[in-house]
């Protein structure tokens, strides 16, 4: 059973190895390179599109925090009681 299977597999291996080989078109490397450059550019663009808003948000928060100082105690609504003289 396994012997017959091996023989069949050998035949298929031979068929694949003996199949006609397609010639590589001379412009294929250049096309691949152009494709790769496009992919890289797209990737870089995505990275910028993700990082830029994040950095802008962080800077905006910093500026707002410095200006508004939300950690400072709010001004009192009432005048403190006058100490007796």
């Amino acid at each position: 059973m396994s012997g017959a299977g091996d023989r069949k597999e050998r035949e298929v291996r031979r068929l694949l190895a003996g199949a006609a080989r397609p010639p590589v078109p001379p412009d294929l490397p250049a096309r691949a390179l152009a494709h790769g450059r496009r992919a890289r550019r797209r990737e870089r663009l995505w990275r910028w599109a993700l990082w830029l808003p994040a950095v802008a948000a962080a800077v905006a928060f910093g500026v707002w925090a410095c200006a508004a100082e939300p950690w400072a105690a709010p001004p009192m609504g009432t005048t403190p009681p006058l100490e007796p003289w």
Binding site: G36, A39, E43
Partner: peptide
């Protein structure tokens, strides 16, 4: 071509 392009990237 696409596979090579992804490899280059």
């Amino acid at each position: 071509t696409a596979a090579f392009g992804a490899t280059y990237a």
